[in-house]
Design a protein around this nucleic acid. Structure first.
Lengths: 338, 338
DNA sequence: CTGAAAGCGCTAACAC
DNA sequence: GTGTTAGCGCTTTCAG
């Protein structure tokens, strides 16, 4: 009984089936598949048999022998955030031509969920891990000591000797403050993300540049969860505090959306007079508002570089690079109002 | 030389290392790991050793023996479209508790790219494939004959005997037409996605319900690529044709964004008077417009059900179910204008 | 240049 | 209960 008789039962041909049907040894089949030197007529016979049996080599088995994996892990805080899907695109750009796939895990900023994804990445012996750590406590040492390349993106790990690709977040914060100063807006409410280096750096950059003279008056600083609802609620709290403010600075894109929504709901008469300055708002389609400025990172580029660093580490380059991309501020009137 | 001496060189402990250090056989280690009956003190010793050696079983090796895979593939036309990231969330909800991961491929509606992802899924011998086929020519037979569960989502495959989860798109189209009729809007331009069953059904549903009396006058039908730029350009063509229309019907979410952008750019004075009816606009944060109606699917539910069907197929259920979810129309004034 | 055979790390019979 | 061992499907020496 050959593989052909078992057709349709959910079986896949193995390299032995191919060898048998082609009348050669498995070694020869393997060589043909891997492009090594084999006599022309045998190559032909093997190729033909591969096609006839619909043979696809098992990567699982391949991975056991060679120890290179065609599977990478991308672990991000929120893959519903367009910023991270664009990072994923950047990584994909590197993977695709190498027949490599990326599995994506969304940690939702939950250290436990993140830990489980890291565990899976380790168990799968992936070829590389690209991660935005949920917090300072994220443990990447096991991955590293297993010899798996790791690249940290978007958020630095304090004291970590990892390849790191991120944006100069301090500079981003400063850019935001300078923009507001330029517009002569000096009474500002801030909405900041969870306590991680990125949120922190953006806020710090903002605060440092806000110390101009005359300085920006920071009327309130609220924390949020980097998602739409967090921004909405933070804005609610600010409005309810009855603090007076004439602009809002926010450290993340989705929270900006929530903020604008809250402004529309709670202060409809002022909604067009309160400029919002946030990060990566260009990833939000059609975001509209009276006066919005976006401090833009380049997520696609971040992903692409991360992918390249994975490749370099696979080739033996030690992980010591830290790349900070410069953000750019784009002021926009949004879609515009009549 | 034990595993401990090789520490830090990028090696991982194997089950043999654990067995040796714990003074038991590999079978015992395996049993402990898989929760089979083992003497208490041995369990203890193995557990302790596993921790000490930082041992993580290789799923690659596991997959070679058992043939169950903890890795699924999700292949969608565009994972930057929030609709599909929500589908992914639904699938994840099923996977997560089973320690299973999903790798996501974006076919970008390119049959060749899709074919490559399917090839990878097959080579990886994934535990299941959830796919939105890029076109009628998508070949899923190889996956199926390898015994891999397949669930088709969002777009049916004509004549395909696959589990299929989608929305009743005809009904969605009808809903759109009825909404416009109810508003007494009877001069409508349509923007339709690429030629696939889903776009087609939505248009057909719309056209059939548009034949009321008095009927809706379809002034123009344009095709687009289901992405923002496609909607923008389709709207440009419509406007340039100088056709008169007082509402727009569009079969996809991102194109609706493009349309609204084009309206704002090209007909700023009318932009608030032209209602747009589209699908899944609730996935677009803050989408605003004079009068928008969204025909909503439930992507999370689609993904969840798809995940469950994968599980059922893994358990032996033949793939014969076809589930059509009912869409709901939500009319909204968007963010509202002052 | 080709084939036979030894593993990669694990599980599951099969013996003890 | 526990240990020994034969594979899972592949790559890669090592002989021929």
């Amino acid at each position: 009984m050959t593989i052909l008789d078992r057709w349709g039962e959910g079986v896949t041909a193995t390299i032995y089936d191919v060898a048998r049907h082609a009348g050669v040894s498995v070694a020869t089949v393997s060589r043909v598949l891997n492009g090594l030197k084999v006599r022309e007529d045998l190559v032909e016979r093997v190729r033909e048999t591969v096609l006839r049996l619909n043979y696809t080599p098992s990567r699982t088995a391949q991975r056991m022998r060679k120890s290179t994996s065609h599977l990478w892990a991308l672990i991000v805080p929120d893959f519903e955030n367009a910023f991270f899907t664009r990072v994923a695109r950047g990584v994909e750009e590197i993977c695709q031509p190498r027949d490599t796939c990326v599995f994506i895990g969304s940690s939702d900023d939950d250290p436990e969920k993140e830990r489980r994804y890291l565990e899976v990445a380790l168990a799968e012996r992936v070829g590389g891990v690209v991660i935005t750590p949920s917090s300072d406590t994220t443990d990447l040492t096991r991955i590293v000591s297993a010899g798996i390349p790791v690249v940290v993106v978007d958020r630095a790990v304090p004291n970590g000797a990892y390849d790191t690709i991120l944006t100069d977040n301090m500079a981003g914060g400063r850019l935001g403050a300078e923009h507001l100063l330029g517009q002569n807006l000096r009474t500002v409410a801030c909405v900041v993300g969870p306590e991680n280096p990125t949120s922190q750096a953006r806020l710090e950059g903002f605060l440092s540049a806000a110390k101009a003279s005359p300085a920006i008056d920071i009327v309130r600083i609220e924390r949020g969860n980097n998602r739409l609802d967090g921004g909405y609620r933070a804005m609610q709290r600010i409005i309810q505090s009855e603090a007076r403010f004439d602009a809002v600075f926010v450290t993340n894109n989705l929270m900006a959306v929530g903020i604008i929504k809250a402004l529309g709901d709670m202060l409809p008469e002022r909604r067009n007079d309160i400029p919002v300055v946030g990060f990566d708002l260009d990833e939000i389609p059609l975001l509209s508002g009276a006066c919005i400025a976006s401090i833009n990172q380049d997520p696609h580029e971040i992903g692409r570089i991360a992918g390249e660093r994975i490749l370099l580490q696979q080739a033996g380059t030690p992980p010591v690079c830290s790349i900070a991309l410069r953000p750019t501020l784009v002021a926009t009137a949004g879609l515009g109002y009549p």
